[in-house]
C-alpha cells in the first residue's frame, strides 16, 4: 500500500500545484474583483441608466446562484462552441479547458461573494457614513478609507468559506478535461484498480490544502482585528 501511495502521491500533488491551486487562486481573485464591482453597483442609487445596469447585475447574481456549477461548466466549455451568431461569433466561442474553468469559477464566485460584500458594507453603521460626510469626505473617499476596511473585517470569514468551497469545487473541472488532482487520481485508479485508496488519498490532499487555508484565515482575522483589542480595566 505504501508503495502505491509513494508512486501516486507525487503525481496528484503535481496536478494540484499545476492546476488545482492556480485555478482556485486566479478564479478567486477575479471573482472577488467582480464581486466588489457587483456589490457597489447594487448599492448605488437607483436612478437613470443605473436602473438598467443594476437589473443586469441582479440577473447575473440570480443566474449563477440558481444553476448548478457543473451545468455552468458544461455550458461554457461544451456549449459555447455552438453559439454561432452571424457577424459576431460565426465559429462559436471555443475556450481552452483552463480558460473555460477560470471563467466559470470566477463568475460563480463573483455572484456569491457579491452578496457577502454587499451585506458586509451594509453592516457598517450609518453613523460612519455620516461622520465621514461631516468632515467633507467624498463618497469614494468614504468607501475606500472608512467603509470598505470595516466591511473587509466582517467579510473575511464568509469569503474564506467561499474560497475553501472553490478549492474543492475545482474537482468538477475534471469533467471538462482539466487534468487537476481529482482527474489524476481517477486516471491512476483506472490503472492500478485501487479506487478506495486513490480517492481517499486525493481527499486527504484536499483536506490538507483546506486546513492550510483555514489557518491562514485565522492569521488574517487576527491581523484585521488589531483595532478590536480587548478593553482593559477601563470602563466605557
Amino acid at each position: 500500500m505504501w508503495n502505491t501511495i509513494s508512486t501516486s502521491l507525487p503525481q496528484i500533488l503535481e496536478a494540484g500545484f499545476k492546476y488545482t491551486i492556480p485555478l482556485a487562486l486566479i478564479s478567486f481573485f477575479i471573482g472577488l474583483a467582480l464581486a466588489l464591482v457587483t456589490a457597489l453597483i447594487r448599492l448605488s442609487a437607483t436612478k437613470g441608466i443605473n436602473i438598467v445596469i443594476k437589473l443586469f447585475f441582479r440577473f447575473y447574481v440570480w443566474l449563477f446562484r440558481s444553476t448548478p456549477l457543473l451545468v455552468q461548466l458544461f455550458i461554457v466549455y461544451f456549449g459555447l462552441p455552438y453559439l454561432k451568431i452571424k457577424g459576431l461569433t460565426p465559429e462559436g466561442i471555443k475556450l481552452d479547458p483552463f480558460m473555460a474553468g477560470v471563467l466559470t469559477f470566477s463568475l460563480n464566485t463573483g455572484a456569491y461573494a457579491s452578496e457577502t460584500i454587499r451585506a458586509a458594507i451594509e453592516s457598517v453603521p450609518s453613523g460612519q457614513w455620516e461622520a465621514a460626510a461631516s468632515i467633507g469626505m467624498t463618497r469614494t473617499q468614504t468607501l475606500k478609507r472608512i467603509i470598505l476596511p470595516q466591511a473587509l473585517r466582517v467579510s473575511v470569514p464568509p469569503l474564506a468559506n467561499s474560497f475553501i468551497s472553490l478549492v474543492k469545487d475545482t474537482s468538477l473541472a475534471a469533467s471538462i478535461t482539466i487534468v487537476e488532482m481529482f482527474e489524476v487520481s481517477q486516471q491512476i485508479a483506472a490503472e492500478n484498480y485501487e479506487p478506495l485508496l486513490m480517492y481517499s488519498l486525493v481527499a486527504v490532499v484536499y483536506a490538507i490544502f483546506c486546513t492550510i487555508l483555514s489557518w491562514l484565515q485565522g492569521k488574517l482575522e487576527k491581523k484585521l482585528n488589531a483595532s478590536h483589542v480587548k478593553r482593559g480595566s477601563e470602563s466605557r
Binding site: P125, G127, Q128, E130, A131, A132, A133, S134, I135, G136, I146, P149, Q150, R153, S227, H228
Partner: peptide, 21 residues
C-alpha cells in the same frame, strides 16, 4: 463641500472610526 468644511459635527454616539487610532 464648502458647508461641510465650515461646520464640524459631533454626534451623540461619537462615530469615531473604529479601525483607526
Amino acid at each position: 463641500f464648502y458647508i461641510r468644511q465650515k461646520t464640524g459635527m459631533v454626534f451623540q454616539s461619537y462615530n469615531l472610526f473604529p479601525h483607526f487610532t
